[in-house]
Amino acid sequence: MADRVYNVLFLCTANSARSVLAEAILNQLGEGRFRAYSAGSQPRGTVNPYAINLLRNLGHDVSALRSKSWDEFAEPGAPVMDFVFTVCDSAANEACPVWPGRPATAHWGIPDPAAVTGSEAQIALAFDEAYRMLRRRIELFLALPISSIDHLALQEKLREIGKSGAGADNGAPADIAANG
């Protein structure tokens, strides 16, 4: 199991900001152990320029990022997902495709930075905050002993991560990573 690469799909309605941020973060932090993807129920067709800018400035590879439909991942020949996370409330309430296999799922709702209006600084701050929250949840996820935990316990841990404040010091309950 140590050599296994887990496939993770992050879903959001437009697939232009939050899900794309999560894809880039997990592909960097989980390199070699995880392969992240993102998609949307109603993809915008382009990735938000603030998301691209932020990721590029933080050293993420943005060359393969694109806004795409979740239908791509429900088709024959698509990668089989081990985990599927919704990162926006709209996508969490939509009827998702049936995913092949039995992926663990959870809702990790994050406020939409693309919905923020105001100055350039206010918008950039909203993207920074979304990135920080997603990164913290992904760090908690990466700390889980995935290969040695049963499916139901894993589902519960994933839901706990999604309910966490995911702040710099007040992430998920302390026992999530420690007790696996």
Results as ranks from 00 to 15, higher is better:
Val62Tyr: 06
Tyr6His: 13
Ala51His: 06
Gly45Asn: 12
Asp169His: 13
Ile52Met: 14
Glu75Lys: 15
Val87His: 00
Gly40Thr: 05
Ile149Trp: 01
Glu156Ile: 06
Met133Ala: 07
Pro79His: 13
Met133Asn: 09
Ala178Leu: 13
Ala2Tyr: 10
Pro76Ser: 12
Asn27Lys: 14
Ala51Ile: 06
Gly162Asp: 04
Gln42Cys: 08
Phe83Gly: 04
Leu140Trp: 01
Arg137Asp: 03
Ala74Pro: 11
Phe85Met: 07
Gly30Trp: 09
Ala17Trp: 00
Ala24Pro: 05
Met1Ile: 11
Leu11Pro: 03
Glu31Lys: 15
Ile25Val: 15
Phe83Thr: 07
Ala153Lys: 04
Glu160Tyr: 09
Gly59Ala: 02
Ile138Glu: 02
Ala64Val: 10
Glu160Pro: 04
Leu11Asn: 01
Leu152Ala: 13
Asn179Cys: 11
Val5Ser: 08
Leu152Phe: 03
Asp169Val: 12
Ala91Tyr: 00
Ile161Tyr: 02
Asn170Ile: 05
Gly162Ala: 06
Ser38Met: 11
Glu31Ala: 15
Gly171His: 07
Ser90Asn: 08
Ala78Tyr: 12
Pro173Phe: 11
Phe34Arg: 05
Glu129Trp: 03
Phe34Val: 07
Val84Ile: 14
Asn179Val: 10
Ile146His: 15
Gln155Cys: 07
Pro43Gln: 10
Ile25Tyr: 07
Ala121Thr: 15
Pro113Met: 00
Ala106Tyr: 01
Asp89Val: 00
Glu120Ile: 14
Val80Ser: 13
Ser16Phe: 02
Phe141His: 03
Ala64Cys: 06
Gly180Cys: 08
Gln28Tyr: 10
Gln28Cys: 05
Ile52Cys: 05
Arg33Gly: 11
Pro97Val: 05
Asn7Leu: 06
Asp82Gln: 07
Ala143Cys: 13
